[in-house]
């Protein structure tokens, strides 16, 4: 991809994040404005939250897409990326709404992707897992092993929410999972359609809030179960 000025759409799927989303968005806006090389638009996909997530996001002055029904993280991400594709963005990025991702890492990722021929760039929290609890490291590594066993994708952090997408990836990537298992399925679909995938190290910020919002081990088990069902059903497709 040529390294000229790009329009970047930063998609933030959000569900019941009213407590922190305003701060996350103002911090992200401020950080992204420092990058003069590319122009950024932040799009929050409010996934049918029953709290004030939508109004808090609107107060921060970003584009807000309200899901009428709660569709899950996979559905909200798909809507955001579909928006980016429809409005002709050159690059898209996804990041979490709980504030665990540094906006500076989005900028680094966008620059890395624009200077390479990569289509999907994963921000890996596990290349340097400092600050992450042992349980989380184990859970995330476990899910990466499951992703490798089921789909043959070798990723150090298959569940990372910080990802950068090229225009090519935006046009071609589709997945069926609606929940958190979409993270692994997306990598599989990307591999199947021949997209070039790479990783870059990112730093995750764990506050009491983001720790509380994080995925439980039961959810990890549910992700494994759903991924296995998806893999088996795809044999017949």
């Amino acid at each position: 991809m040529r390294d000229s000025k790009k329009r970047v759409c930063v998609v933030i799927p959000a569900y019941k994040e009213a407590a922190v989303i305003y701060d996350v968005l103002t911090r992200t806006k401020k950080a992204l404005a420092k990058d003069k090389k590319h122009s950024y638009e932040i799009v929050v996909v409010n996934d049918g939250s029953t709290d004030n997530t939508s109004s808090e996001a609107a107060r921060a002055g970003v584009t807000v897409i309200d899901h009428i029904l709660n569709s899950g993280a996979g559905g909200a991400t798909a809507t955001g990326l579909s928006y980016a594709q429809q409005y002709g963005f050159d690059v898209a990025a996804t990041m979490d709404a709980d504030g665990q991702h540094k906006p500076e890492d989005v900028i680094t990722g966008v620059h890395t992707l624009c200077g390479s021929d990569v289509d999907l760039l994963i921000g890996s929290r596990l290349i340097d897992s400092q600050g992450m609890s042992r349980v989380k490291v184990l859970g995330n590594k476990g899910l990466s092993v499951v992703t490798y066993l089921l789909f043959g994708i070798n990723s150090t952090d298959s569940q990372s929410g910080l990802r950068i997408y090229s225009k090519n990836a935006l046009a071609q990537l589709e997945w069926k999972s609606r929940g958190y298992e979409f993270c692994s399925e997306m990598l599989w679909r990307a591999k199947k359609i021949g997209l070039k995938i790479d990783e870059f190290p990112i730093e995750a910020i764990y506050t009491d809030y983001s720790k509380g919002k994080g995925q439980s081990n039961w959810n990890a088990l549910n992700i494994v179960r759903t991924l296995m069902a998806r893999r088996i059903s795809e044999i017949f497709r």
Binding site: I65, H67, G75, Y83
Partner: peptide
């Protein structure tokens, strides 16, 4: 249904 939900949400926004 998913496509409709997605398109409707974007259009309404």
């Amino acid at each position: 249904l998913n496509d409709l939900h997605q398109a409707l949400s974007i259009r309404l926004s």
